[in-house]
Design a protein around this nucleic acid. Sequence first.
RNA 1: UUAACCAGACUUAACGGUCGCUGGAUUAUAAAUCCGGAGGAAAGUCCGAACACCACAGGGCAGGACGCUCCAUAACUUGGAGUCACGGUGACGUGAAGGAAAGUGCAACAGAGAAUAGACCGCCUUUAUAUCCUUUUGGGUAUACAGGUAAGGGUGAAACGGUGCGGUAAGAGCGCACCAGUUUUCCGGGUGACCGGAAAAGCUUGGUAAACCCCGUCCGGUGCAAGACCAAAUAGGAAAGCGUUUUAAAGUUGCCCAGCUAUGCUUUCGGGUAGGUCGCAAGAGGUGUAUGGCAACAUGCAUCCCAGAUGAAUGGCCGUUACUCUUAGAUAAGGUAACUUUUUAAGGGAACAGGAUUCGGCUUAUUGGCUGGUUAAACCG
Length: 115
Amino acid sequence: MTQFSFPKNKRILKRKDFKRLSKQGKKVLTQYFIALVTKGAADNNRIGITASKRVGNAPERNRIKRLIREYFRHRKENNPETKDINIIARKGITSLPNKEINKELDKLFNKISVL
RNA sequence: UUAACCAGACUUAACGGUCGCUGGAUUAUAAAUCCGGAGGAAAGUCCGAACACCACAGGGCAGGACGCUCCAUAACUUGGAGUCACGGUGACGUGAAGGAAAGUGCAACAGAGAAUAGACCGCCUUUAUAUCCUUUUGGGUAUACAGGUAAGGGUGAAACGGUGCGGUAAGAGCGCACCAGUUUUCCGGGUGACCGGAAAAGCUUGGUAAACCCCGUCCGGUGCAAGACCAAAUAGGAAAGCGUUUUAAAGUUGCCCAGCUAUGCUUUCGGGUAGGUCGCAAGAGGUGUAUGGCAACAUGCAUCCCAGAUGAAUGGCCGUUACUCUUAGAUAAGGUAACUUUUUAAGGGAACAGGAUUCGGCUUAUUGGCUGGUUAAACCG
């Protein structure tokens, strides 16, 4: 298993998990994201991404999800905790280019690691 | 050359590096290798089907959709070729294009009058009054009243056929000729819508049916979250076995066993949730070609296998090369010039948009150039 792989046990895929996060998770807010964080059930960090129809049309939502996944894939080894994180994209984000979105994600994950 | 019209195919790319995601196959085990992995609209979910389940003897009413002709198709409200009407100099475009002499309704403003028409001005006639001329009858002008009149003016999107001659007090299809239109009949062409021609009739009937309506044709419902199968845990149900308890009932003189009831455990059964598998990718399939057809399309042959995810894959970063726009510069060629071609540098841009059972269409969104055909105008030969 190489360092940057991103198989399914690193992702949150089940509706139950998302529901648990929305009930129990702590909220972290930035301008373009909301993150819900709890202690994880698995033995590594897991991430889920929510981009509702309000964010934009399908290609735009795909772009946001792919960027967040790539970001998490490259940095998940930096902090070896076991958190479940659900990142919810907010409305204005589709107007940003890719590099700006990465900067915004830096801000978000700094706030999360403080928790 | 310029300005247009129509059709078609394509589409932000291509290559390299690196890190990944997803389906499959093979090794074989938790990894490696190999092969696949978004669109012309995948969109809107607007039509038509396949497929699945439910309902269903047959017929009618209601409701809805559609409405020129022939052809194509599994089917269609779709497509092709035509007809007719309208628009355009033209290529061509647009059209829910049956019925208004079944019935009902509607028509702002203007106008006298808007659908078994209508006298505002005008025109004509009678009568009365005034006045003038002539002065024998009579005639002219003005006003008023009554009547006639759809020629002319004026209004309007639209005024109840048009032109001419006759006719008349003035007029009028009142009569006649020609023209337009309607209906009927006949002849010729076309599979047909329809087109061309001839005759007769009554002389003429306005518009609106995406207003009600009438006529004709068609239509059962729900959608892959359809539906089929496998199937934990928990609760409850049924059956069997084992154990326990004591109250009530039955039985017994009384007691015990059996039985019954209650309860616990185990097993089995069926229903069935989470979850999983199938449905689900070889098809009304694609490509090429031949034949038939104006074409849509059909048939034959060859060849190919081309996404199957499910909080939902098809991507991120770096580099190079093209495409295009703007700005600045350079050189040569053409040109009076504006400018065009070539080239360098810097900066920017690349749309609309992403499968979710599958096909055939329609509609809508949209970047950029490309190819072919056609029309009009100008110039040259």
